[in-house]
Nucleic acid binder design. Structure first.
Lengths: 111, 111
DNA sequence: TAAAAAATTGTAACCAATACAACAATTATT
DNA sequence: AATAATTGTTGTATTGGTTACAATTTTTTA
């Protein structure tokens, strides 16, 4: 069932449910929530919180940042060499996860 | 009323309400929510969303990142020279706001 | 095949946030 | 100063995403 996460880009739990429901009519929202949480715990996916609105999930767990278009609300991934590119946290802070998120206007909304 | 935002560091709306309520017994949650939103619109404060949990607000609008301790849930600010330090978004993306957020263990929880 | 364990379902509850109508306070207008 | 108009505040009801949980189904194990 994990394949759907890979098809959509940054779906909400509801989007996953809607997409899966036609194929598995008995599927319940509970299962979706629980499965998504499980994937995140196991490291197969990640939760991303973009400003307002619902939680989003994505199966791409490589290092990348997110760009949220203020107009169309689309989320784009953008890649950068690695976490060494990012500012260091103060000494004695043990960083486990880095999260980079931009907001603005995407190319197609700019015209 | 804005001075409370400056006293606490990254309060939730509820924290602002609780702190203000003793002094202004008639104060309502609605007013707090609305005032905080107003401050953010006017650029006097900013909303920050840290993983799970409620929205947080802060009055420091200088350029800095946030570090959330996984154990004690404290939010620390850390400063870096400027947004030029951060990876560039792809060409033709017009970035309006950059947001950097780390997660891990803070020095006092590390011991 | 039966018993045990694990997964799924659906409903109810939760809780932060918003909407909104009633009310109070402040400012503007003669 | 008095009235009207505007602005701000309050409290309650509602929303909407998420979680809790008991009941049921499915899968695994012996």
């Amino acid at each position: 069932m994990t394949y759907l996460l890979k098809n959509q880009r940054h779906p909400t739990a509801e989007m996953v449910y809607s997409a899966l429901h036609p194929k598995f009519p008995t599927l319940s929202r509970s299962t979706v929530y629980q499965a998504l949480d499980l994937f995140c715990e196991k490291g197969a996916a990640q939760k991303i919180v973009m400003g307002e609105g619902e939680m989003r999930f994505e199966a791409d767990i490589s290092i990348h940042g997110h760009f949220l278009c203020r107009k169309c609300s689309t989320i784009f991934n953008f890649f950068y060499p690695g976490d060494t590119e990012l500012p260091a946290a103060p000494k004695d802070f043990h960083v486990e996860h880095r999260y980079l998120y931009y907001q603005g206007i995407c190319p197609s909304c700019a015209t």
